[in-house]
Amino acid sequence: MFESSAKTKRKPMSAARKREIFKNWVPMYVMLLPFLILYFLFMFLPIMGGAVLSLTDFNGLQFPAFVGTGNFSRLFLRDPVFLIALRNTLFLALITGPSGVIISFLVAWLIRELHRPLRLVFATLMYLPALTGAATFATVMRFIFAADSHGLINSFLMRTNILIDPINWVGDANWTMTTVVIVSLWTSFGIGFLAFMAGLAKLDKAYYEAAAIDGMRNRMQELYYVTLPQMGPQLLFGAVMSIAGAFTVGLISEQMTGNPSVAYSTHTLMLHMQEVGTQRFEMGYAAAVSIVMFVMMQITWSLIKRMLKRFNAGN
């Protein structure tokens, strides 16, 4: 933005100066206005509404009854499903969040080594699952992971004798998590991947030469000391996207294993909120879950920001 001037004493503003400020700033706010209105109406107000609802017991028809922190105490103390969901969410968030970013980065880094035409081909192929969207992708995946003994994976494994009986990928509590993790990783090449590809393209070669002169020995060191620091903004971007996605993980789980999944084995916070809200119609409770999710996201976000400060010295 503008260079901050030194903190000198300010002269009183002349009319001309006022007009100048007006001409500079107001048009900007006017242009921002539509977005601000929409944001306020569709993001801010509902969030506030959710916060208020979380303090009530609302069943959809009768007027909400105020219960204060009753929902939260029930959530943390008397709801076993919430704890399962919390565990699953953290597990999935860890897998699809950081792992997704790391895998995206590594694959982007590897693809950069190829010739240009091949690079294009592979980049497209990698990004394709994200393009098609989780819902359509899940349809294909559900077919592949069918629990029938004639399902794709099952029949292959049975033919090559790795299995004797078919595995119920989506209906057996021991296997559902594995299935969801595999499918999630597959779709985690999202926009972050593209950002990394772009960022890696614009790296300054001079730094590598300088580092080589200074005694850098191998690609790993190169990666850590030269590449990653320059990728600061992209890492931040990738982290932001993945954090937001990681806590709201649940779509893949829902598509593959249903809501609720068998023995809540792939139940996440998002799904818990949906299930409580749309199946049990306890809106106040669902709002409380969403508030908890919101707080967790905030905490994680500040932690990540602190970690990435190292690579974002300039910002």
Binding site: R142, A146, A147, N168, V170, G171, T176, M256, T257, G258, N259, P260, S261, V262
Partner: peptide, 10 residues
């Protein structure tokens, strides 16, 4: 007993 559309409900 499996319903592909609702794996969690038999």
């Amino acid at each position: 007993e499996m319903d592909a559309g609702q794996p969690g409900i038999s």
